[in-house]
């Protein structure tokens, strides 16, 4: 099972679902920012120090920490 934190820069993935372990408030916030089922996410790059990750979703760029990306399942 692959999560968003495993995706390599340059790869494009599709959001499958959120894990139940994640923070509910954060999930709500992410839903508002376009992280819904079926959304295409392209990972652009990882920051110099290994975290956070920069990605493109719904045509704009956003960054997430790995600990939060870990709760998002992708394929």
């Amino acid at each position: 099972m692959k999560t968003l934190s495993d995706v390599k820069p340059g790869e494009t993935v599709t959001l499958v679902k959120y894990h139940d372990t994640g923070d509910v408030d954060l999930r709500r916030h992410l839903l508002g920012m376009g992280f819904v089922r079926g959304a295409q996410i392209r990972v652009k790059q990882v920051a110099s120090l290994g975290d956070p990750i920069e990605m493109t979703i719904k045509g704009y760029d956003v960054c997430l920490r790995k600990e939060e990306a870990k709760n998002i399942e992708v394929e």
């Binding site: 923070d23 916030h29 992410l30 760029d61 956003v62 960054c63 997430l64 920490r65 939060e68």
Partner: peptide, 8 residues
């Protein structure tokens, strides 16, 4: 706060 930040 979780870190979800738009890069404009």
């Amino acid at each position: 706060a979780p870190f979800v930040m738009e890069l404009p």
